[in-house]
């Protein structure tokens, strides 16, 4: 297995899928001649030509809608948002068109397409370019929400998302693009809706997705030093959620901490902890604790930005709390 970056893994997935299916095309801002704002689509224009790798004007609502129409007409668009912050401009097409098309047309039309791009908090870009909004999309029937936390998952999940017959919201992490890890070569598939146990443990379950998976793993190492054996679960697909893997873990550890970068109110952690309470109440030895981003827009100053985000220390603290170590 070769060691490659998260962005190269995404690139491989798109190239493989475009080679096997002519209906797949990539469209977005700076995806072609510029090779992608984050270089995810490096070399794809050269490989596939301007028919299938298409630079757009800065017109998110327009090209999101174009993708919706093209998918209804039988193509398989990959629509890249430079970041998910800009996708807010395209919400009507994502929420009112793509998500509802299959249902609203009695199954006659569907929108098999991927909206993808960088999400989550970036570094030092203040409020409008640093936010985790996956809970918006996860709330909507008709959408699937996928968030890989490492290069191998990035490749396997993106391939699955492109092949999936529904609209997939594929949220990459801007900070993770340069992460390097071993990734299987050639065709590699990670099924949607399957969580992954990133670290096995007996004492406490840490559920974390995207960049927070890395934080949870770091916290688990710290907890191990303190004699707490943490299990780390990465749902990978936020919707539909593999609750069985989470519940099985809680049945074993009897304690859970849910971590997310986004805001606490009506967040992903709220959903997961509610599911644990509803379905594994008798397994719990302590109330589920959430570690989330602070309930403020992201500030620019380095110290404030650090304060606004969840930290490894906070996760360690939360795990100690549910384990009655505080």
């Amino acid at each position: 297995m070769a060691k490659i970056t998260y962005r190269e893994a995404l690139n491989q997935a798109m190239c493989n899928e475009m080679e096997r299916d002519d209906r797949v095309f990539l469209m977005g801002e700076e995806v072609a001649e510029y090779n992608g704002a984050y270089k995810v689509s490096q070399g794809m224009l050269e490989k596939f030509g301007p028919r299938r790798v298409i630079d757009t004007p800065i017109t998110e609502l327009g090209f999101a809608g174009l993708g919706v129409g093209a998918s209804m007409a039988g193509l398989r668009p990959i629509i890249e948002f430079m970041t998910w912050n800009f996708a807010i401009l395209a919400m009507d097409q994502i929420v009112n068109a793509a998500a509802k098309m299959k249902y609203m047309t009695g199954g006659q039309y569907s929108c098999p397409m991927v909206f993808r791009g960088a999400g989550g908090a970036a570094a030092r870009v203040s409020s409008q370019h640093s936010q985790a909004l996956e809970n918006w999309y996860a709330n909507i029937p008709g959408l699937k929400v996928v968030m890989p936390s490492n290069p191998a998952d990035a490749k396997g999940l993106l391939a699955s998302s492109i092949r999936d017959n529904d609209t997939v919201i594929f949220i990459e992490n801007e900070i993770n693009y340069g992460d390097v890890a071993e990734v299987p070569e050639g065709e590699y598939i990670v099924p949607l809706g399957k969580a992954d146990v990133k670290r096995a443990g007996r004492d406490v379950t840490l559920v974390a997705h995207s960049r927070m998976t890395g934080y949870a793993l770091a916290a688990a190492e710290e907890l191990a030093k303190q004699g707490i054996d943490a299990e780390v679960i990465d749902p990978r697909t936020i919707r539909p959620l593999d609750e069985a893997t989470i519940l099985a873990s809680v049945a074993k550890t009897n304690r859970a901490v849910v971590i997310e970068e986004g805001w606490r109110f009506a967040g992903i952690g709220a959903e997961i902890s509610a599911r644990i309470m509803e379905k594994a109440f008798d397994d719990l030895d302590a109330p589920v604790v959430r570690v989330t981003g602070k309930d403020v827009p992201m500030p620019y100053a380095a110290n404030l930005e650090t304060l606004a985000l969840p930290s490894v220390a906070e996760i360690v603290e939360a795990a100690r709390t549910v384990c009655n170590r505080n």
């Binding site: 029937p141 809706g193 399957k194 539909p240 609750e243 069985a244």
Partner: peptide, 14 residues
């Protein structure tokens, strides 16, 4: 019916 095309049994919600 017709909320999504590819259901994933066991995943929530479907």
């Amino acid at each position: 019916k017709d909320v999504i095309s590819d259901e994933i049994p066991g995943a929530y919600p479907y």
